[in-house]
Computed example of a mutant assay.
Amino acid sequence: MTDLESLDSYLSSDDSPDDCMMLSDLDGFLHGVACSPVQIHADEWLPIALGGSPDDLPDWVLQSISLIYGSIIQGLTFDPPEVEPIFWQAQEGHVIAMDWCEGFMQAVSLRPKQWLRLTESGTGGQLITPMMVHLLDDNGNSVMGIPQEQLDQALEQAAEMIPESVVAIYRFW
């Protein structure tokens, strides 16, 4: 069992590499790697996730990340599949999925040409939409052109759709 609180504390601490992902974007990134149309070896994605060489990290951190990745793969193969994204929770109670989605899309960017089969397909292209809804530009505007007054509701609805979208993307390949 992975101690997510300890991993989160480590990733947020001064002990971790400056460019390492935080827990939510790491989880999204690992889901994106797991859903990739082609296998991406850990030797490639681990330094991106960690912001440096895995050799510089404590063994328990690497083991925790491996356990999370393994549980994601396992959850996707269950019948029915189980996908439990690690989203942040705002003090007001609403879910914040933006970091998770940015991590997922960073994994997509590792193999953009291979993802085109999904994104340009008539039926599969919409599967990535819940993640895309959460991408904002530097001014806080939707990259999908969602009007600011509709953005909060769109983000909430999209976050609810992410688990089933991840399953559908995994099955698409």
Rank of each mutant, 00 (worst) to 15 (best):
M132D: 07
D137W: 12
L136E: 08
L136C: 09
G125Y: 13
P47K: 09
P80Y: 05
I68G: 08
P17C: 02
V108E: 00
A49P: 03
I128F: 11
R111G: 06
D56I: 01
G32R: 01
Q114P: 01
D14Y: 04
L26R: 10
M22E: 14
M98P: 00
G122P: 02
Q114V: 06
D25M: 09
D27A: 01
M98T: 13
G125N: 06
D14H: 04
M21F: 15
Q74W: 01
S66C: 13
P58E: 14
H41A: 00
W100F: 15
P81E: 05
H31G: 02
G70L: 03
P112E: 00
I96R: 00
L127K: 14
M21A: 09
Q114Y: 07
Q39H: 15
L30Q: 05
H134K: 11
M98S: 09
I73S: 07
M131L: 15
D59R: 02
D15W: 12
G32N: 01
L116M: 05
E120C: 00
L30S: 05
N139Y: 05
V133K: 13
Q91Y: 13
G70P: 03
V95H: 07
Q106D: 13
I48G: 14
T119D: 04
S66E: 15
L57E: 14
S53I: 04
L116T: 01
